[in-house]
Design a protein around this nucleic acid. Structure first.
Lengths: 231, 231
DNA sequence: TGTTCAATGTCGCAA
DNA sequence: TTGCGACGTTGAACA
């Protein structure tokens, strides 16, 4: 990994065109040739970048550029597309290289899969007397997150999202249409469960007779006695 | 901006829990206190990070950690939520600070808004005799990108995407359903316009009687005589 | 300030 | 390889 702090411009052309005027920025060149251009603020997203696979070529500026004070030109060309990032360096304030080695990678815990597991364990959140049929109930158009039976013998199909958006309601609607054709299951009622349900999604769901269930992750986890912590 | 290359672990807790085992990585501390943890590969997304507003606190490790070789502990606490990133530094290979100043920011060209503007100006790309009604035509479920009239007096609703995916066809379908209830507009025909239309999206659109229009950005721009070049 | 929607989205999984 | 959905999405425009 090479770290360069330099006064520079950067121009990307590819899926769109984007240009950075002259200013001092951090340039990170990773071992795979990818390049990040970072300002001293903003979030983790670089101002400009080139993703691997790509190759960095360093060249001397033409006369015109040199007359403007350009010391060096970096051309970062994507290997498969015609995406290209060109960095003009005017003044280099810092330049160092470092051997980092391969990273062992990230360990994660706690998203949609976990919500599904917790709701399956606490299926009576759907209402008293409900029973789990199975998680990931397979259908021709994809698996339904949770299938359950209500006390009246009807079926309940649950779609789980971390954030309940209109797309999720559409998805559940497609499942319900399909499931209700099966005489062994019908009538199938829908429940849209999420940590947060957007107003538009709630309106659409209600309009279609689909129930909404807001999941409190902390509460679900609190009830979950098995101390299934990863670290 | 402070650049540190160090052997470290990093643990995030907040919306999820994520842990990075000990390895050598780049730590970037920006002027606003935000922190990025980068490996020497992957894309522009850091392995772990903390977004502003947040504060970085450096402390000495407790005895237990110190016995394991931890030299220093960084605690990065988000200002508004309880998100937290803890970095344990075992060995510091590089440490430097740099004054970058404020960045003038990115100039972009060729995004969806621009495509919409160009198509509105060249509305006859929909066919001879078409006339623009308006851009961002408001409906109860959101604005339609472009509404136009065809020579026969029918209405055309256009959904524009940079990349035409199945979602965009679903969106346009919802608009069409709604617009066709309006006797002043009906019949309303749909056109799905994008720089690139995915095969599945095209199939779905065609199946629903929605037309597909591939937008050639360079050509649209070439016809645009106003020399509105950004750089 | 909150909501909505695009993004050079990126990332991971499965068919 | 492509499709599909989640993401600690981020970011910007708009109400």
């Amino acid at each position: 990994m090479r770290l360069v702090v330099a006064t520079c411009t950067a121009t990307y052309s590819g899926r769109l065109d984007a240009h950075l005027p002259q200013a001092t920025r951090l340039l990170v060149v990773k071992a795979d040739g990818s390049v990040l251009v970072h300002a001293d603020g903003g979030s983790y997203k670089p101002l400009n970048w080139m993703s691997p696979p790509c190759t960095l070529t360093v060249s001397v500026p033409d006369d015109e550029r040199a007359a403007l004070g350009v010391q060096e030109v970096w051309t970062v060309q994507h290997a498969k597309s015609d995406d290209r990032l060109v960095v003009e360096l005017f003044e280099v304030h810092h330049d160092s290289a470092h051997e980092l080695g391969v990273d062992p990678g990230l360990v994660k815990d706690g998203v949609e899969a976990h919500l599904q597991q917790l709701l399956a364990e606490q299926i009576t959140l759907l209402g008293p007397g409900h029973q789990l049929v199975r998680r990931e109930y397979p259908t021709a158009i994809g698996p339904v997150d949770i299938l359950a039976r209500d006390p009246a013998g009807g079926t309940v199909a649950v779609e789980i999202k971390r954030r309940g958006d209109i797309d999720g309601v559409e998805q559940l609607t497609r499942y319900l249409e399909l499931l209700n054709r099966d005489p062994l299951l019908a009538p199938v009622r829908g429940v849209f469960a999420a940590q947060e349900i957007r107003p538009q999604a709630r309106v659409l769901a209600t309009d279609r007779g689909i129930g909404c269930l807001v999941l409190d992750y902390a509460a679900l986890r609190g009830v979950d006695d098995a101390g299934s912590r990863l670290f």
